[in-house]
Write a protein that binds this DNA or RNA. Structure first.
Lengths: 215, 215
DNA sequence: ATCCGTGAGTGAAATATTTCACATATCGAT
DNA sequence: ATCGATATGTGAAATATTTCACTCACGGAT
């Protein structure tokens, strides 16, 4: 029985956001044949303090051993469980332009917990085309297919003008998370997760720090 | 003469990171024909508090008018200046795979301050191919071309195994900012900016909040 | 001319996040 | 068996960030 009388504060979102980075670095080390690591080494690799890593992990349990550090395999398993990666998530790509094409062909998804099952486009001439082993579906069939297959996540790679309208359809059909590549802010109900990926926003953040005169 | 005796605290990076979002929303409104806005409206659009927007902007000056709000054109100009977007930055894409292809063809860059001048690939069979008006160059010529053209920013779309090695070459040649699409952490000198874009990391962040049982 | 609703800018307060530094545990070597 | 080096987990302290709530200004309406 869980302790329902004590207010359990939610774990800060900023902490959750770092867990995938820890996981990625740990898997990298694991693939190098390494068996253990320490908050110190991990911190050095990721450019952050060891204290932050220990504090972050301490929200979820005690995964390390004093004097020894962390057993990589064990910590990887734990992080996967925390992030709900011990299952495969079904992902649909919306929009089969250059970006949708690149996403469908990216083989970094499947080994990290995500299976791209569908790609949709409103351009009828693209329907039927094979992209990375996935065949382009007509946009008309979005709702039916997503509902039938129980697709949980969408990668939104449509023009900005259509992003909100498509989002509304996705939400209505039960998609739980959307990673939006269009340069526009989306409005969704609070139980739907949205992530943003606008390369220009990232570049504009960096230019603030650049020396305009150099080169 | 600037006030060199008073310690001027740096503006928080988290504030800088929000400016491109304000800019994007303002340009959107501007394109809708809107002339003025308020911290309230902007906040509603972006899902943040009006106080935060006012506080953020107050780091740089007084751009609004009490009782009236902000003049969109003026604020856009100011933000562009702050973010050093009143010039065109020269960008090279490294890696001409599906992703490099998508980046080279993305027409969202040029109107927002970034000009993709070059795309490089080590695969000699891709050299000469036209991607979004840019011709693929051999990787061997990376240093020479970047130095000659004064390219300031690189979009790194090479396999993870090669990302650090290519980064070292870019840094040595004088590139000031790198947006890394490879799923690996990069090590760079402190005067070089690095941004990361790993879709899987973003998805893994979102899955934490998803209901594993749904669908 | 005055009033009223709107809204910026801003110190102060409240929260959130990071870092410090220490008690404690482990392991290998002597 | 003891020592020393290493390294976790964690309260407390230090910082950073956000929100509050107020003063003051503007502009349209009466």
């Amino acid at each position: 029985m869980s302790n329902s009388l004590v207010a359990m504060p939610a774990i800060p979102d900023i902490v959750i956001g770092r867990l995938p980075l820890y996981l990625r670095a740990l898997i990298y080390m694991k693939n190098q044949g390494q068996l253990t690591t320490s908050s110190n080494e991990l911190g050095r690799r990721l450019g952050m303090s060891s204290a932050q890593i220990r504090k972050d992990l301490s929200h979820f349990g005690e995964f390390g051993k004093q004097g020894t550090g962390y057993h990589i395999n064990y910590l990887v398993d734990q992080l996967r469980q925390i992030l709900k990666l011990d299952q495969e998530w079904r992902v649909a790509v919306i929009g089969a332009g250059f970006l949708g094409h690149a996403l469908a062909n990216y083989n970094g998804f499947i080994h990290r917990g995500f299976h791209i099952s569908w790609i949709f486009d409103s351009d009828i001439t693209k329907v039927g085309e094979d992209m990375g082993g996935v065949v382009v579906q007509p946009m008309d069939e979005l709702e039916e297919t997503i509902a039938r297959e129980g697709t949980q996540i969408a990668l939104l790679a449509v023009p900005a003008e259509r992003a909100q309208a498509v989002t509304d359809r996705l939400v209505k059909t039960g998609v739980q998370a959307i990673l939006n590549y269009a340069p526009i802010n989306l409005t969704v109900p609070p139980d739907v997760q949205v992530g943003y990926s606008d390369p220009v926003v990232q570049l504009q953040h960096m230019t603030y720090y650049l020396d305009a005169s150099r080169s």
